[in-house]
């Protein structure tokens, strides 16, 4: 149990492999012990149903609530995009994978909306900065991460694909730190009382205190 020379911060247990090999490998008994392990696992898997593996593409393990998968563009109650094309996500994006074109919204209260919102999924590094930066909680992340396509051009996701796809309802949303802010209705219009996705995050996000969060001068 001596620290390895090289300076680990904690004690690292070391195994003297050659010593153990001499003890175990050289005997016939260790061979039968190995068979024993296999048979025991065979027995528990077959008769007790304790199988550690899953049928992966059909089944999957639950992901974290904060999983940063592919993006979702959230919508208002009337089905229109929440996004106001403020370009915060495109500005913060370190991979420069977000491309937005803005248009004049017919409602002067909303004023601006994206006529084009493309994310190059092959360029994206899934850092979640766009979600952090969004002042409207218009972009959040999902728990999907599958990107198998036949053509490279299919990885350029437009508004339709980002807004609605089957995986969102099946797996639920992922990383969305600004949800408490959105639910505190600082920026929300009254016609949108609740968020379509429930979340188990209960602690108040600092962004709820948006206005008092700004440093007081003097």
């Amino acid at each position: 149990m001596t620290p390895v020379s090289g300076g680990y911060a904690v004690d690292v247990p070391t195994i003297n492999v050659s010593d153990r090999a001499r003890r175990e490998n050289a005997t016939v008994w260790s061979t039968f012990r190995a068979f024993g392990v296999t048979l025991r696992r065979f027995y528990t898997s077959l008769f007790k149903g304790d199988i550690p593996t899953i049928n992966y593409p059909e089944e999957s393990r639950p992901y974290s609530e904060r999983f940063r998968g592919t993006h979702i563009l959230t919508v208002r109650d009337d089905g229109s995009l929440k996004c106001v094309a403020c370009y915060m996500c495109a500005t913060i994006c370190p991979a420069e994978c977000i491309y937005i074109e803005a248009g004049e919204h017919p409602n002067p209260e909303i004023e601006k909306f994206p006529t084009r919102f493309d994310i190059d999924m092959m360029r994206c590094i899934y850092c979640g900065f766009c979600v952090d930066a969004c002042p409207e909680e218009a972009i959040i992340m999902s728990r999907e991460h599958h990107q198998s396509v036949y053509e490279r051009s299919e990885t350029l996701w437009g508004i339709e694909k980002l807004m609605a796809r089957p995986g969102i309802d099946a797996k639920g949303p992922g990383y969305r730190p600004n949800r408490p802010m959105a639910e505190a209705r600082i920026f929300n219009k009254p016609e949108q009382p609740v968020c379509p996705f429930p979340s188990h995050l209960e602690e108040r996000h600092p962004a709820v205190l948006y206005e008092s969060m700004i440093r007081r001068r003097g």
Binding site: I186, R216, R217
Partner: peptide, 16 residues
């Protein structure tokens, strides 16, 4: 760098 003393919902609305 001040905090507004006026709630956002009560501000005067004008033509936009």
């Amino acid at each position: 760098g001040h905090d507004s003393r006026y709630p956002l919902g009560q501000k005067t609305r004008r033509r936009k």
